[in-house]
Design a protein around this nucleic acid. Structure first.
Lengths: 193, 193, 193, 193
DNA sequence: TCTTAAACGAGACGGTACGTCGGGTCTTAGG
DNA sequence: CCTAAGACCCGACGTACCGTCTCGTTTAAGA
């Protein structure tokens, strides 16, 4: 067998992600450039392009590593509390709007289907699963109407976040969050008779 | 009295917007360039920069002129029908995702607060007002709970659109739209007792 | 007389030349622009282009008005003194090198034959005539060799000025000037035998 | 040892100088642009700006490479012949006036001291040295007056070239050249007694 | 332990587009 | 008709990044 190839440099990888985080925090995603990342990380551009296809992919990996949102759904016993927990974690990823890598990534994904797919698969889908698990448990316990559409529930709860983000309306404050959750639960709850 | 200034050329303005529409349709917002607009419109770059601060501003004006969504709220008698009408019109503005000026504009607005404000004021706010008028009429007629939060209603109905757009999930099909509206109305309707 | 057509505005002409002089003195000929002249003079660009074909032509007219070099040849009795007088006046027109309209004009004339011709006819030729008159008088008086070529004399005396100007060598100081004149006179003087 | 930097591309350098020579010959120095050079050479503008500060610097390098004027002074035995040889070579560099890079460079140097210095150091000074060597040899041989000022001699011989060039008078023809040299030598020759 | 092929830093390269400047022409309204 | 104001088309400017491509230089696996 041929002598093995040299291996990827872990220290470069770390330096690149660190530089990306710094620069994104300093200037925002839109002003982030591969050139600047390479310079800050003390790395050649080639090294970046060797391992990532685009700026977005680098940021995605950064976000993937940074994301702290639990994969395990919370279960405090109270559904509303748990939903608030989950929403709050997502809001954290989209804050502050000016320099959040998350928002930049979303903007990029809007005209980059490949990146969008990656984003969906690696970051979003696991959290959606978490969210649905929690809802299904509630449904099984009879807290939600048996015919409630959980996909709609996802849209009803997370949609408003993106809606507000798009128009720079600021992220929902706690009381608005409560109102949002209350309305949504009402939509999912079996009508009393 | 001082002699008057030279006037803005209406024909240039039209040519620029037309070129923008064409190019956006051909290559999508992300690949749209001021250079290309100028070339296609037979106009100098200077003329574009004289009247618009950025590519986004041009597209915004284009969209503003193109938007056909009624300012007057529809009133067919059936609330669900009217809401579906409004949502459908918004969906039209965001379709097709690859070449829609609307989606490009939203992506840009995500890291351009000035553009976001303009977008909100000139395009979105009037339609929100329309939407709320229709809801308030329903509320007055007792079709909605008197304490229903109309801001939340807005988020519940429009939020999902952005949510799906962000992740390239495709716009809701009619049956999904019905489900969405039904759930939302349930959230806004006084519980039967 | 008929209530006549509007005539060329003398005040505009003066303002334009004044602005040109100021700006040339401030930034040098190379950074002089028609735009700036128009703005400073409170005049429209059109008005400048109506009366002058180019920046060079404006500066030429400015120089023409400003030139103080006597058309009448000096005659102090001493030929060397008079030549020094004439040379000194030309040097004055080419000083300071950074902001002298004269040097700028010369640079422009190097690739603008039309301007070069104008420059020759309006500014240079009269001074050449003056110069030659003085030399011819000396020749008639037997101070110069009867077969001395006065065209060569012109080149010998004025050529060095341009030579030094081109290479930013600084204009000749008085003692160098004396040496130059002495050598030239020797070239023009009948050899003693 | 530090890893080496990427090396300058010799082929680009040659293509740039070749394109410059062509374009200058076609349209003249004044209409020469960096854009056109880059396009003709199949090179990016950045590559030009990376290695030269201005259009003038490119042309200077071109001229430097092209210049064929001997550094070794000619010595045919006859001083006048050798001077004519030297002058003729300089005239060649300034011909034809419309498209000669040399003249364009001189025009530019008139308002660019940096370029003027480069021009002086790299192109002119070596030829001046050549010129003076030849004169000094003649002086040592007693053909010139021991107190003749060789700097003045330089001005007397080369000055007229620039003088005529400036006013588009055409370069001296051979007979004029002879007259010029004859007069100059007379100025430098010990008076016979 | 030595070989060797890959990954690496550095950064030059051909490009595309940027946003700005000034040129010279044209239009509008006032005097 | 001349003028001030200034918009217009045009073309070049010099800059910023893109993504690709050598260059030598580590460096770590396997022979």
């Amino acid at each position: 067998m041929a002598p093995n190839a040299a291996r990827r440099s872990e220290s470069s990888r770390k330096a690149i992600l660190a530089a990306t985080a710094e620069l994104c925090g300093e200037n925002g995603y839109a002003r982030l450039t591969i050139e600047a990342i390479a310079a800050r990380a003390g790395v050649s551009k080639k090294t970046i392009y060797r391992w990532w296809p685009s700026k977005g992919a680098v940021v995605l990996e950064l976000l993937d590593q940074t994301a702290t949102i639990a994969i395990e759904p919370p279960d405090s016993g109270d559904l509303a509390t748990d939903l608030r927990t989950l929403l709050t974690e997502v809001i954290g990823m989209l804050t502050p709007p000016e320099t959040s890598p998350g928002i930049g990534l979303i903007a990029e994904a809007l005209h980059d289907p490949d990146l969008a797919r990656e984003l969906r698969e690696r970051l979003i889908r696991p959290r959606i699963a978490t969210f649905k698990q929690r809802l299904r448990r509630a449904q099984d316990a009879g807290q939600l109407s048996p015919d409630a559409d959980l996909d709609v529930a996802l849209d009803l709860l997370y949609g408003p976040l993106y809606h507000r983000m798009v128009f720079h309306l600021g992220m929902p404050d706690p009381s608005y969050l409560d109102s949002l959750i209350a309305h949504t639960l009402r939509a999912l709850t079996p009508p009393r008779h």
